[in-house]
């Protein structure tokens, strides 16, 4: 099946181009933007895994499921939790990989402009079994949520409040930083901590316990936790 995908991709990819809302220029622009990804990711006919997995048929694929590709523990965990690559999740991920997977191996600071991401995804969309079934653009999820992912309100968190709040975390996450079955959350840079909790809060990340915990944390409380856990090693 995997061997078939590139051929199908190319056949359908070109056919569907005509009905696409994304213009040929957009797709061509997306291809140029993909140059930033090429060192690690291959796509198209006979694409192989490089530092990262090949991206043929990435849409609607469960995260961390390409055989032979190397994934971080965090990405495998996200895949098992139910992370699927869709137009929405890819959009969020490309904007900043740590939005969705804090411990990802993907060492990329993120593509901030929505137009860039949209064009890049229009290009990648062609390498799917049936691109016509993939939505053209991220419906609403990121458009309204994205800006808050980069608000820098986390810098002056109240660490003493964070220490109290941390009691809710340490029923599961160990303050020693041990990382077995449940990830370590100690010593993180504050921005990583904040965007992770925001992503759970918004339901971008799939884990039900973390969604529940994060849902009732205010921005102030997230900042407080980030300030506390940053200093805990």
């Amino acid at each position: 099946m995997r061997a078939l995908i590139p051929a199908l991709v190319l056949a359908f990819g070109f056919l569907s181009g005509a009905t696409s809302v994304a213009s040929a220029q957009d797709i061509a622009r997306g291809e140029r933007l993909f140059n930033a990804c090429l060192r690690c990711h291959d796509v198209g006919k006979d694409a192989k895994n490089r530092i990262g997995p090949h991206l043929n048929g990435v849409f609607d694929r469960k995260a961390a499921t390409i055989e032979g590709a190397t994934y971080s523990k965090a990405m495998k965990r996200a895949g098992a939790d139910g992370l699927r690559w869709t137009i929405d999740t890819l959009n969020i991920y490309i904007q900043n990989p740590k939005n969705l997977v804090s411990g990802t191996r993907m060492n990329y600071r993120g593509m901030r402009k929505e137009k860039d991401r949209s064009d890049l995804l229009a290009y990648l969309r062609q390498f799917s079994v049936s691109p016509a079934n993939i939505p053209e653009a991220s419906a609403s999820l990121l458009r309204q949520d994205a800006p808050s992912l980069h608000e820098e309100t986390y810098l002056d968190g109240d660490a003493e409040y964070g220490e109290y709040l941390s009691g809710e975390c340490t029923s599961c996450h160990q303050s020693s930083g041990a990382d077995k079955g449940i990830p370590s959350i100690t010593g993180w840079p504050q921005p990583d901590f904040v965007i992770a909790l925001r992503a759970y809060k918004k339901g971008h990340r799939p884990h039900p316990v973390m969604q529940m915990i994060a849902k009732r944390l205010s921005e102030e409380e997230i900042a407080a936790l980030a300030a506390y856990f940053k200093e805990l090693h």
Partner: peptide, 17 residues
């Protein structure tokens, strides 16, 4: 499987707490 492994992690976390 992940949920089971998570429960093992929780046990370690809970007893440390």
């Amino acid at each position: 499987k992940q949920t089971y492994e998570e429960s093992l992690g929780w046990y370690a976390g809970m007893t440390a707490d």
